[in-house]
Amino acid sequence: MSRVRPGRIVSWTLLFIGGVIMITPIIFMLSTSLKDASQVYDLRVIPAAPTLDNYIEILGDGRFTRWFINSMIVAGIVTISNVFFDSLVGYTLAKFKFRGRYLVFIAILSTLMIPTEMLVLPWYLMASQFGWVDSYWGIMFPGMMTAFGTFLMKQFFEGVPDDFIEAARIDGLNEFTIWWKIAMPLVTPALSALAIFTFLGNWTAFFWPLIVTTSAELYTLPVGLSSFAVEQSIQWEKIMTGASIATLPTLLIFLFLQRYIVRGVMLAGLKG
C-alpha cells in the first residue's frame, strides 16, 4: 500500500472546496424549487414540507413551454448555423491561398475584441431598420456566425494534412464535397466542441434576447424566467423551478458529450 502524499491531500481538499462552491447554488436551486412560497427564505437544504406544486404549475403554464421551445429553436438553429458557416470559413482560411487571406482572418479575429455591450446598439438599430425586432430572426442573427468559431475551426483545419485534400482532388471531388466529405469528418471533436459551446451559450443567453423581444411569446427561457421577478414581485420558487427544468438540456448534453467538451477545450488551448 502506498502512503497518500501530503500534496495529494492538499489538492483533494482544494478540489473538494471548489466542488462544494460550484454545486451549492445548484443544490439550493433544486431545494428552493421543492418549497412553497412561504418556505423560500427558510434556508434549510432539505425542505420541511417538500412539494412538487411548483413543477406542476410551471409545466402547466403554457408560457413556460413556449419559452422552452423558443430557446430550443434559437439555440438549435444558431448552433447548426455556426457549425456550418464557421467551419466553412475556417476551412477556406486554413486551406486556400489567396490574396488578402491574412487580412480577412485578422479582421474576423479583431471583432473578438469588441465587447457585446458595444455591439448591442448597432445590432438593435440594424434589427429595427430591417424590421427584425421581436422576431426569431432578430434574436438569432447576431450569433449565426462567430469569430471565435471561425478561429477555432481554422486552427483545427490547419491540422488536417493537405495530402487528404489533394488525394480527394485527384479522386475527382469538387472543393465543396472535399470539405464536406473529407475535411469535416476529420475535425469531429472540434465540431462537437463548437456545437456544445454554441448551444450552451445561446441556451443561457439573456441580454440580447431581452432587448430584441417585446412580446412574451417570443421570450427565450432566461428572459421568460426573469419576468417572474419583475411582474409579480420575486417568485423565487418559480424562478428556481424554471431554472431547474432549464438546466436539464444542458445537463444532458454535458453527460453525453463531456468527452468531446474536454477534448475540445484541451485542443483549442493547445492550438490557440
Partner: peptide
C-alpha cells in the same frame, strides 16, 4: 486541366487514406 481530368492516380507519402 484539373487533377481529376488528367486520369492519373497518385500515392502519397503519408498514405492519405481517410481515417473515417
Amino acid at each position: 486541366l484539373q487533377p481529376k481530368d488528367r486520369n492519373i492516380a497518385m500515392v502519397f507519402q503519408n498514405y492519405a487514406i481517410y481515417p473515417h
